[in-house]
Design a protein around this nucleic acid. Structure first.
Length: 539
DNA sequence: CGAGTTTGACCGGCGC
DNA sequence: GCGCCGGTCAAACTCG
């Protein structure tokens, strides 16, 4: 901002054209100019480096980028913006006309200067993109290296343990317990080893991008009971932030309680634009606290799920410090009760995200049949849309719904192997949304389930592309579909997701605890809905 | 009057 | 050891 002010001051001194601006404070003026310019250029993708290390490491670049972005919107938000300012601002013109002797020269100088700044802006932007990419690659490499190393260590340790098992069974048992971190239930010993490794390593978060943030609020997903990967962890640690609040979840799941290692829990954070104070996600919440968090002028509210006694699910709601229109909702824990369909749909997505986060880091890349790709860089999504939280005390996956993207970007850029399942949580939504679209736009039914993923994507893309081409109301239909899928109600139908269970196609939400492989698309009417999940829709 | 919210106090972890 | 901070508790308060 200082930089922006300096720039404005600079321009002011150069041409004096800003002098005529009716007086909004610099910040406001910037915002206004940004708005008036129409922001025809997509904003720099926001990259969240939750890790303090990363943050500190990249802070300068980030700052630079922000400044760059700010400058971009204030003085050269897009090609020609500067000129537009000059030409559209009558006051400016008048100011320049007051000094006819230097008009041409000043104009030329200003143009040159603006062009130069624009170039610099572009350079910085590309630098930021590059840094983001590099960061992703490095993190992936680091994780892989750590996993390999850990795997080797574990093997050695295991061999040693086996040698001594006969004499000290207790110790082995204890070690086994220790191997159960957040992603507790693993299918085999190898997974447990990997899991442990992961929990010790920096957390990866991926930010899934989505679109139409104004209408979509993704539900978080912590979920649950269906998800083996998270269930144990959540059950054992129950309350979120469990290390600090062990009493919150008195006694449930007795057996698992015995082992109560202070391992991390996965969190699912959702960033979505919303003017509403909070998002309704199909669950009932009771506020139990509010705090001012450091570094954010907006208070953080704490909610607890009240749909069932003793439900361990918590959520935090806070507005983004940088952009107060962005609501950040963080979910933790698994519901221990059936959810309304509206909530289930959402929860499915969020739980998939959580599962992905947890199992993703526990799954080796060389296991192609795994349901989850191991690292976000391998995900077929633009890495810049994913926020990775590496330093958070809990593994956190952030679903960023604040960016506008083409609906097609819900799908991977490149189709994954046909044998793979959807690697990312939003696929659940995507599938549902597509289902809604099929319905609302009379698209031919697509047997998604039978198709391989690649085919599925291809079909979807083709069909939807065709729909877009043939139906100008696609956006409307998409919005309606999203509203429906989000569990909320399509604007015309109903109030909010809390009670609007019937709007959702997924009615089979109770009692089904089958674990949904992370990212498996949930189709409307899919019987494989998780029992408990957290969902939300817009208010 | 019950359910939900507000808000100051309290607790425990963590960094210095 | 101390202070900061995040998270939770619980009494007081509000609202329908």
């Amino acid at each position: 901002m200082d930089r922006q002010r300096r720039e404005l001051t600079f321009l002011h001194s150069r041409g004096g054209f800003l002098r005529q601006s009716p007086a909004p404070p610099p910040d406001q003026a910037i915002a206004e100019s940004s708005c008036s310019a129409g922001d025809r250029k997509p904003p720099i993708r926001e990259v969240d480096f939750f890790s303090s290390g990363n943050r500190s490491k990249l802070s300068s670049d980030e700052e630079e980028s922000k400044n760059c972005k700010g400058r971009s919107t204030s003085t050269l938000s897009d090609p020609g913006t500067g000129l537009n300012l000059l030409s559209l601002n009558s006051g400016t013109t008048a100011a320049l006309e007051d000094d006819p002797s230097n008009n041409d020269t000043e104009m030329r100088m200003l143009r040159l200067e603006l062009e130069r700044l624009h170039e610099e802006n572009r350079r910085l932007r590309s630098m930021l993109d590059q840094i983001t990419k590099n960061y992703g690659h490095l993190q992936a490499q680091l994780l892989m290296a750590m996993q390999k190393q850990a795997h080797l260590n574990q093997r050695e340790q295991q061999q040693r343990d086996e040698m001594t098992t006969m004499s000290s069974p207790t110790k082995s048992a204890q070690q086994l317990m220790d191997l159960r971190p957040t992603c507790a239930a693993m299918d085999n010993a190898n997974d447990e080893e990997k899991t442990r490794e992961v929990s010790d390593s920096p957390t990866t978060t991926m930010e899934v991008m989505s679109k139409e943030s104004d209408h979509i609020h993704t539900p978080p997903l912590n979920h649950p009971n269906n998800n083996h990967n998270i269930e144990d962890g959540d059950r054992t640690s129950q309350s979120w932030g469990s290390p600090k609040s062990p009493r919150l979840e008195p006694s449930k799941g007795g057996d698992e309680q015995l082992a109560d290692p202070p391992f991390r829990k996965a969190r699912v954070s959702v960033r979505a634009r919303s003017e509403a104070p909070s998002i309704s996600d199909g669950c009932q919440w009771r506020k139990y606290g509010q705090k001012m968090a450091k570094g954010n002028p907006c208070p953080r509210a704490y909610y607890r799920c009240t749909m069932a006694v003793g439900c361990p699910v918590r959520k935090q709601v806070q507005r983004c410090a940088d952009d107060k229109t962005i609501l950040i909702t963080t979910y933790e824990g698994n519901h221990n009760h059936p959810l309304p369909p509206a909530a289930t749909a959402m929860a499915n997505t969020t739980s998939a995200a959580a599962a992905m986060l947890l199992s993703g880091s526990t799954t080796s890349k060389d296991t192609p049949t795994s349901a989850n790709p191991g690292y976000f860089p391998s995900l077929p999504y633009p890495s810049t849309m994913a926020t990775l939280s590496a330093s958070a005390p809990f593994p956190t996956i952030t679903l960023d719904l604040t960016q506008n993207h083409n609906p097609m970007q819900l799908f991977p850029r490149t189709p994954p192997p046909a044998s793979a399942t959807f690697p990312l949580p939003l696929h659940g939504y995507a599938a549902q949304i597509m289902g809604q679209l099929q319905h609302s736009m009379k698209l031919p039914a697509m047997p998604l389930v039978q198709l391989g993923v690649g085919q599925r994507h291809a079909s979807l893309v083709e069909s939807v592309s065709a729909a877009i081409a043939s139906d100008p109301n696609f956006t409307t239909a998409l919005a309606a579909a999203i509203s429906t899928v989000m569990g909320g109600a399509p604007p015309r139908n109903g109030p909010d997701g809390n009670s609007n269970a019937n709007n959702n196609n997924n009615n089979n939400n109770s009692g089904n605890n089958h674990f949904l492989p992370a990212g498996v698309g949930v189709l409307p009417g899919s019987p494989q809905l998780p029992q408990s999940c957290t969902t939300f829709s817009t208010n």
